[in-house]
Design a protein around this nucleic acid. Structure first.
Lengths: 261, 261
DNA sequence: CGCCGAATTGAAGCCAATCAAAGGGAGTGG
DNA sequence: CCACTCCCTTTGATTGGCTTCAATTCGGCG
């Protein structure tokens, strides 16, 4: 089976701050266990867009944003990577986006060639690779669904998602700016700011500088829940109607939201 | 190297109508060459959402849409698959979306287990798998960028993309409805229709029933070009500014469009 | 204290969704 | 052969949400 092959991978307990540590979460085997890797501290740009894709990275401490800027100067934040996430894999010889550390970040760095060579001989490494690729694909699919959502849903999903991936239950650090969040969600920074205000006004969150207090985690999750692909939350499997039966009959902007001002 | 490993795969010439045949395009080794496969003709639903993911498919003739319907009844067309495309791969045991043939479709069908087993022993099969997964991930990334675009850009990108993948140069068949296109691009069917009218009025396309004549392929591509990730069109590699320098300074909706009514 | 960038709040404009209705095209039955 | 239905498509009018432009406040730092 492909889907959980990477769960039972090598475990190397290591002291760290955030609960739970990333190696206790699924989908996060340590890169250092799969190929020769350097542990290093980085600041600022890790690699630039269109640099040769020589290395593959895994976040150990901190957060990394990947940014894509197209020829017209249009900026998109592709993703925010938290401890355990692997980034830098490309299907071409060059990086399609730059990677930039948000503050001080510790990463594992491996040569891409050695990872691929290792995957060619060691099947567990290959399975880890598949897991990462499929996970990245699914994350991208989720993000593509974000395009249909309202600002409130987008931000609620963002906060829930980051909190889940960081393993944060109540207090969440957001080291990125409102511009970053906007460029990630496809919103203007003003709308992000306004939406924070709405969530604050509804008592779902509180803000303390760059920290966010999640006052009502469940309500946040509900607001953003529709954006998660079912593969991610397979707890409940409702009936699945044929696609044709629902073709276009449902509004895109108001699909049963809890409350819209 | 990972990126082109799947290009030099087994070639089985076979008579077909559309130029160029898919086996002459990169990224499309025949599934039948990688694992035991049945060639079959299908109509209607190929598999339903949440069905067990037993088989993997490759389109031979025709077009297949994959549809995701979430618990609230919200419909999303994930993708339209053209000859050569592989679909049905999941990272879970069940399908996250249904697959439905648009008219009469011929497919190769292989058991997922046998493909995975084949990949475990044959490295070229594994490379084909990687190529498909990375390509699917990149396609999803492209779609996530679609969320930021205007209706005109979305439709222009859609037409260019489908034409490229179909290998069509001037006359393009669109077997799906306006609702399907809308649910794919995150637009209402009315907006899709209106946008077709705009493109027609600008002389970029003409429509003949379910066929579209691409009168100005280059202008279409330019309208939708910003949505393509650079990995896909590496012909020209412009300068890549740092992400911070451009942080949020550029408008999201009007990034240098040719003309906006 | 004063500078500068980020964050917030306000006001106005625009694009796409929504509601509504009319115009085709295919298939069926009289 | 025509009438009829059904569904898709197209077009119009209105509404709403987000962007944009603009002004103000907040927070860090020399």
């Amino acid at each position: 089976m492909l889907q959980n092959a990477y769960v039972a991978s090598n475990i190397h307990p290591r002291p760290q701050a955030e609960p739970p540590p990333f190696w206790l979460r699924p989908r996060a085997p340590q890169l250092a266990c799969l190929a020769p890797a350097d542990r290093m501290k980085v600041r600022g740009t890790i690699y630039a867009q269109e640099d040769p894709a020589t290395f593959v990275y895994q976040v150990v401490v901190g957060m990394v944003r990947t940014v894509y800027v197209n020829r017209d100067g249009w900026r998109v934040v592709r993703d925010f990577h938290v401890p355990g996430d692997v980034f830098g894999f490309e299907n071409a010889g060059i990086h399609t986006c730059s990677a930039e550390a948000l503050g001080d970040v510790h990463v594992f760095r491996s040569e891409r060639n050695s990872v691929e060579a290792s995957a060619a001989t060691d099947q567990s490494v290959a399975h880890s690779l598949w897991g990462w690729l499929l996970a990245a694909g699914n994350r991208a699919e989720c993000l593509s669904l974000l395009g249909r959502a309202s600002a409130l849903e987008k931000l609620a999903y963002f906060l829930s998602d980051v909190a889940d991936r960081m393993g944060a239950t109540r207090r969440l650090e957001l080291p990125m700016s409102r511009f970053d969040i906007g460029d990630y969600l496809g919103l203007s920074s003003e709308t992000v700011s306004r939406t924070f205000t709405v969530l604050r006004g509804r008592g779902l969150i509180a803000t303390e500088g760059r920290f966010v207090l999640l006052l009502n985690r469940e309500a946040l999750r509900q607001l953003g829940r529709e954006l998660a692909v079912s593969a991610f939350n397979q707890k409940e499997n409702g009936n699945a109607p044929n696609g044709d039966e629902l073709r276009g009959v449902l509004p895109l902007q108001s699909r049963g939201m809890a409350a819209r001002t």
